[in-house]
Design a protein around this nucleic acid. Structure first.
Length: 131
DNA sequence: CGGCTGACGACCT
DNA sequence: GAGGTCGCCAGCC
């Protein structure tokens, strides 16, 4: 017996984390976490969500960054990639060239498939320290 | 106030 | 490895 097979149609906290309502200001919290990502490092949507206590809300983190207002140019959105270390494709189906360039300016290389080179080492996890 | 819009992640076959 | 399913929520028309 495992929790994984408990109920397929129901909610599995082991997998998705706690059900919790962040409430208004969710976007602002996302931005705050992203601001704390140091130059030359990257993090993931899921890690940001986990840091907010909502592992299951990775998608919402993406939505929040998609809605990032231009005046929030203090938020290094480009340091956020997906869990595989890939730059998330935008509406046109390809990764943002601007994101690639901004990362490159910090010494973070992105290969031709859109994946961050040496992602495992550069990834900033919730309670991770630089090597 | 109803409906639509979005940068994801983990599992399963 | 690739493709599909399900679960998440706040903003802005």
């Amino acid at each position: 017996m495992t929790v994984a097979m408990a109920n397929r149609s129901g909610y599995d906290p082991r997998r998705h984390g706690p059900r919790r309502i962040i409430g208004p200001g969710f976007h602002a919290k996302v931005y705050e976490v992203v601001v704390s990502v140091p130059p030359g490092r990257v993090t993931t949507f899921g890690d940001v969500a986990a840091r907010l206590g909502l592992r299951s809300a990775a998608r919402q983190v993406g939505y929040a960054l998609a809605a990032l207002p231009p005046e929030r140019d203090d938020v290094p959105w480009y340091r956020v990639v997906n869990a595989r270390g890939m730059l998330s494709p935008r509406a046109d189906g390809q990764p943002s060239a601007e994101q690639r360039q901004l990362l490159a300016s910090e010494g973070v290389d992105v290969d031709e498939r859109g994946r961050v080179v040496d992602f495992a080492s550069l990834r900033l996890r919730r309670d991770d320290a630089p090597p």
